[in-house]
Nucleic acid binder design. Structure first.
Length: 160
DNA sequence: GCCAACGTTGGC
DNA sequence: GCCAACGTTGGC
């Protein structure tokens, strides 16, 4: 049982989009970064918990919680020449890219990256490191609990 | 829109 | 296997 943070550009798939999907579930396809692929293929498994993060938008931050509901399998878009995620070097026998599936759990308040940076307990988070661009990052169990705790408190008690 | 940081590609 | 060039990410 592990913890993760997954970035999504809300104009592609927002937390509301995820909630509106059939079964509130989607394949997390289109990841074309080896480190993120390896996390999915080697480590992510059903039952893992996920912070859903909006990036590349006016207010980047954590917006909800999801869970992994399907272990990694080959990403179908790599075989589809009409897809922007097509990869000519991938074959059915030797797929290069994988996706897991995630399912909506709940929305949270917006916990912005700006706010995340204010907690010394979170300074080691990957997404807060300079230049970090990984769209899937592991979250330390201690950090997970810390963030959950922040999310449960009224905002007025958290921000000075 | 800018730009720093990083990953990937490809010539050698 | 090096490394320059290029493309992408993502906060601001």
């Amino acid at each position: 049982m592990r913890y993760w943070l997954i970035k999504s550009e809300p104009y592609k798939i927002s937390i509301d989009d995820l909630a509106a999907m059939p079964e509130q579930t989607t394949a997390w396809f289109g990841i074309r970064n080896y480190q993120s692929r390896n996390f999915m293929r080697n480590q992510m498994s059903p039952g893992d918990s996920v912070f859903f993060y909006h990036s590349c938008c006016a207010q980047p931050g954590i917006v909800g919680i999801a869970k992994v509901t399907q272990a990694a399998y080959p990403d179908a878009t790599q075989f589809d020449p009409s897809s922007r995620y097509f990869d000519a070097k991938a074959t059915e026998q030797n797929p290069r890219w994988f996706n897991i599936e995630i399912t909506y759990v709940k929305k949270t308040r917006l916990l912005t990256i700006k706010e995340l940076r204010r907690y010394p307990e979170l300074i080691r988070m990957r997404i807060l490191q300079q230049g970090n661009r990984l769209s899937i990052t592991p979250i330390d169990p201690t950090e997970w609990k810390f963030i959950l705790n922040i999310l449960e408190k009224p905002i007025t008690q958290v921000i000075k």
